[in-house]
Amino acid sequence: MTTDVPVLARWFGYMDSDDPDRVLGMISDDFTMSVQFSKGSGASAEFVGDRAGLIAYLAQREKSTLVHHIDVGAVVGEYELVLGRTTRAGEFEASFNATAQLDATGAVRRLLIARTPEVAFAR
């Protein structure tokens, strides 16, 4: 395994910045996503959709608060897959998995992200 997952590394770099809307330039015309977002203790939300769904997801996020760390990743054909964690002020907040399917130009066609504070992977 590796952490050399260039598209997802750029995606989460943008998400951690003051301008996360830059991810909108990374998606294909037929983009579809689902973000399963657990706050812990069984409380969760799902954000789904196409470009408009991603815009709605971006609008409700805190900006420049969380930092995504990719711990392991793999590129398999047109797919990038990662396991990582988010931190807030340097402290663990949640673990996440992300899978992106890329089109022939390298744009993100499909994105599935799941996160939970209930499971931390040993480092």
Rank of each mutant, 00 (worst) to 15 (best):
M1V: 14
M1D: 14
D4G: 04
V5T: 15
F12K: 02
F12T: 03
G13A: 12
D18V: 06
L24N: 06
I27K: 03
S28F: 06
D30P: 10
F31K: 02
V35T: 11
Q36F: 10
G42W: 00
G42L: 01
G42P: 07
G42D: 06
S44F: 12
A45G: 05
E46T: 12
E46D: 08
F47H: 11
V48K: 08
V48W: 00
G49N: 07
G53T: 03
A56T: 03
A56W: 02
L58E: 09
L58T: 02
A59D: 15
A59S: 13
L66R: 14
H68G: 10
G73Y: 04
V75H: 05
V76H: 13
V76L: 15
E78H: 10
Y79G: 02
E80W: 08
V82W: 05
V82H: 03
R85D: 15
R88E: 15
G90Y: 13
F92P: 13
F92C: 10
S95A: 14
F96N: 00
N97R: 02
A100P: 08
Q101N: 07
L102C: 08
R110P: 06
R110L: 13
R110H: 12
I113C: 06
I113F: 00
I113M: 11
I113Q: 05
P117A: 10
V119I: 12
F121S: 09
A122N: 13
A122Y: 04
